[in-house]
Simulated assay, not measured.
Amino acid sequence: RPAGAEFLPLSRSLVNIGQTFPPVAVLALAVPAVGFGEKPTRIALFRYRLLPIFENALTALPPLPGNVMEAARGAGMTGWQRLMKVELPLSAPVILGGIRLSVVIGLATATIGSTVAAKTLGEVIIAGLISNNLAFVLQGG
């Protein structure tokens, strides 16, 4: 949006910097702050899953055809109405692609939560590694 354009480089940099830290490192930093269990896992997964949604939303919104936006303005829509009734519906496939990618990333990395006592499939993997049981490792994977 034009009103927040000056914040785009800063927000993009913050999200990209957040993506450079591996989820295990975020877990290690979150455990002293919030303790063991699900909370540090949720923090790590939220931070790790944010980039695909953020980038796809930024990619989807600006390149809408000018004639579509002009038609919406000509119909008397306010900026909020244009966003909700024109821009978001036309951008939805790309934004949903980012959400889909985010879900896959979350499922793939959720197993690390078991290292901080969260109930995940990582428990089965860790049990298999400890007992040298390949079936458990494969089942968790």
Score class of each variant (00 low, 15 high):
T78W: 11
I43M: 00
N56A: 11
E55G: 02
K39Q: 14
A44I: 07
F36I: 15
A44K: 03
G113Y: 10
L134C: 11
G37L: 03
A92C: 04
F136T: 10
A71I: 05
Q139D: 11
T109C: 12
A3I: 14
L29E: 04
T78A: 09
T78V: 07
P23L: 06
G4N: 15
L134F: 13
Y48D: 01
I53D: 01
N132R: 13
A92D: 01
L14Y: 08
G35S: 09
L58A: 12
I17T: 10
L121E: 02
V86K: 05
A108M: 08
A127S: 12
I17E: 07
E123G: 12
L51C: 11
F7R: 14
P63W: 05
R12Y: 09
L107I: 08
G79W: 11
P9A: 08
L50M: 11
F7L: 14
I125E: 08
G66C: 10
I126N: 09
A44V: 04
V116E: 05
A108I: 06
A71F: 10
A60G: 02
T120K: 04
L64S: 05
E123T: 15
P9S: 10
N67C: 09
G79C: 13
N132W: 12
A92P: 02
L61E: 00
R1W: 15
A92M: 03
A25V: 15
A75Y: 14
R49D: 13
G18Q: 04
A71N: 06
R100Q: 09
P9L: 08
S91T: 03
Q139S: 13
L29H: 07
I130L: 13
V94Q: 00
L121Y: 07
V24P: 07
F21H: 07
V34E: 05
R49N: 14
I99W: 00
A75I: 12
P93H: 01
L10M: 08
G98R: 00
G128T: 10
P22I: 14
G122E: 00
L10S: 09
L83R: 12
R82D: 05
G66I: 11
L58T: 05
P89V: 00
M77A: 03
I95T: 02
T109F: 10
G98I: 03
V68K: 06
I130C: 10
L88K: 04
T78K: 12
P52S: 03
G122I: 00
E123M: 15
P9T: 08
N132L: 14
L101G: 06
I17C: 10
F21L: 13
G18D: 01
I53K: 01
G97H: 03
L90P: 00
M77N: 04
I105M: 09
V124T: 12
I53S: 02
P52V: 02
I125Y: 06
N56W: 01
V34D: 07
V103T: 05
G97I: 03
L51G: 03
L88G: 01
S11T: 09
L8F: 12
L83F: 10
T120Y: 01
Q139H: 10
F7D: 14
E55K: 01
V116G: 04
K119S: 15
